[in-house]
């Protein structure tokens, strides 16, 4: 794990009077999918929002590709090459699918090959290009949110619970799409509660509880070790069992 892409060391974040992150240490190696597991309220989404600069860390260091980014404004972090798919998907429902994609393409014009690859990955993007994004179904919105994040090559993509609230069939499709994305050498930090999806995609895994990372290791190790799963699952996945 030499020269990781993203490291958080001892990061604390407060939201109003609440102390949510209490010293998060997290390492995201270059390439592959890092999964962040943990039960509701463990601080996973807050971790992503802190990395993205939407919340200011009160203490600790965040390094992206060696550069300190803690406390940098969100647009600068985005332009440094981090894309973000929030839990609520952040789709602009008043804009059409095409306009949503257009705003995500910060360079101005679309890369035609990339766009057709995305349209193949997520067919509804092509079909509903002219429709307001607000009229899409939940799964389609999720696809649009991910498509927006990858319309231009990014170095790191933060995805917050892409399986949340989706039908099993759509989760399978989403897993396949993310799997294909993984082949393109993009690094993904994935927050997920669905263990099937997490273990299918993940290379490394960190488990959070009470605002800290309580376990970090290989996904394969966790998938293969029932006892460890039991111990950590108790923390993280009881809701889904």
């Amino acid at each position: 794990m030499a020269d990781p892409l993203l490291t958080l060391s001892g990061v604390h974040t407060h939201i109003g009077p609440y102390h949510i992150l209490q010293g998060v240490d997290l390492v995201v190696p270059r390439g592959g999918v890092s999964v962040l597991l943990g039960r509701n309220g463990a601080g996973k989404s807050t971790t992503l929002r802190t990395i993205m600069g939407l919340l200011k860390p009160s203490r600790g260091e965040i390094r992206f590709d060696g550069r300190l980014i803690g406390g940098t404004p969100t647009p600068a972090i985005s332009r440094a090459g981090i894309a973000y798919v929030p839990e609520n998907m952040g789709v602009f429902s008043d804009l059409t699918v095409g306009e949503n994609m257009q705003l995500a393409a910060t360079q101005g014009a679309f890369d035609a090959t990339r766009l057709s690859w995305i349209k193949a990955l997520f067919p509804p993007i092509a079909t509903f290009w002219e429709k307001p994004a607000g009229t899409l179904s939940g799964g389609q919105k999720q696809m649009l949110a991910v498509a927006r994040a990858i319309i231009e090559p990014r170095r790191l993509i933060l995805i917050d619970e892409p399986s949340k609230g989706l039908a099993p069939a759509i989760v399978t499709a989403m897993t396949r799409a993310l799997g294909e994305l993984k082949e393109t050498d993009t690094t993904i930090l994935l927050v997920e509660q669905n263990f099937a999806m997490a273990s299918a995609l993940g290379d490394t895994v960190s488990v959070m509880d009470d605002g800290r990372v309580v376990h970090a290791g290989d996904m394969a190790e966790l998938s293969g070790d029932a006892g460890m799963q039991e111990r950590l699952m108790g923390l993280s996945l009881e809701v889904h069992q």
Partner: peptide, 10 residues
């Protein structure tokens, strides 16, 4: 927030 996350200075 999402506009900012896409890289625009709101």
């Amino acid at each position: 927030e999402m506009v900012e996350a896409l890289g625009y200075r709101i």
